[in-house]
């Protein structure tokens, strides 16, 4: 199978502090990868590099056959193909949920308004908040907002979805409704890279687990093997603390 994301020897610094050290990573289409690790290990930075919300200084990142480099047009093209869901939802508060979902398809993909609204309603139905379409983000609960954010990303019909700790800012009882949507998405065959501490979710959907610490990929293994038989001591320690 071909690769849809390829990272080769990626290095990144914030000033003098090295956040990513020689990261190699390959993702095939439809693969689901969960990245975990202690805070400050560079996992968020890593997925933010994949749609270039952060710049890497060394190495190559190739997404869907296009190398991420200075060229702005390339970056915009890749961002349109890569959906991202943030910890803080980042819905646009001045627009209704429906407008949140149709804005980018209309202005970036140049979809006619009517068609964009159909796509939006389809995706809002999929995340089960179609009845909230005309409300504003401030009127929704955290779980609903995060589902709306997922729908917004899906409206661009991305090939890849990145999740940056999507449930970390949610109340415990709202986590499940968001995870359910993500499981549904995974079963639909989406390529997903998820940074999360939800190990139950990881066990259910992930093909591969990646454990990061201090900017390095410490362990990369099939999900079952990762949980039952981790190789490195650092992974064992981490797992013993969160499970």
């Amino acid at each position: 199978m071909g690769k849809i994301i390829e990272l080769k020897k990626v290095n990144k610094w914030f000033d003098k502090f090295q956040v990513l050290k020689d990261i190699d990573l390959e993702v095939a289409p439809q693969e689901k990868i969960v990245i975990c690790g202690p805070s400050g290990s560079g996992k968020s930075t890593l997925i933010r590099c994949i749609n270039r919300l952060e710049e890497h200084q060394e190495g190559n990142i190739i997404v869907d056959g296009t190398e991420l480099a200075e060229n702005t047009k390339n970056i915009e093209k890749i961002r349109a193909e890569v959906g991202m869901v943030f910890q803080q939802f980042n819905l646009f508060p001045h627009l209704s949920i429906l407008d949140n979902c149709t804005l980018a398809p209309i202005w970036v993909k140049k979809l006619p308004k009517k068609e964009a609204e159909e796509v939006a309603m389809k995706n809002l139905t999929r995340v089960q908040i179609d009845d909230q379409a005309l409300k504003f983000p401030g009127q929704l609960s955290g779980g609903q907002q995060q589902r709306a954010a997922i729908a917004r990303a899906l409206c661009m019909e991305p090939k890849i979805m990145l999740f940056d700790e999507p449930t970390s800012a949610l109340d415990p009882e709202m986590i499940k409704e968001v995870l359910d949507v993500m499981v549904d998405l995974a079963k639909g065959g989406m390529t997903m890279i998820v940074v999360t501490h939800e190990m139950g979710f990881a066990k259910e959907v992930a093909d591969y687990m990646i454990f990061m610490d201090e900017g390095k990929i410490v362990e990369r293994a099939k999900t079952k093997e990762f949980f039952e038989n981790p190789k490195s001591d650092r992974t064992k320690l981490f797992l013993s603390q969160i499970l």
């Binding site: 919300l53 980042n90 646009f92 970036v108």
Partner: peptide, 18 residues
């Protein structure tokens, strides 16, 4: 404005002007 608004807009493929 929170930085997240810029990032969300960028992540949807919008350029500077949009």
């Amino acid at each position: 404005l929170p930085k997240g608004q810029y990032e969300a807009a960028k992540s949807l493929g919008m350029g500077y002007w949009r």
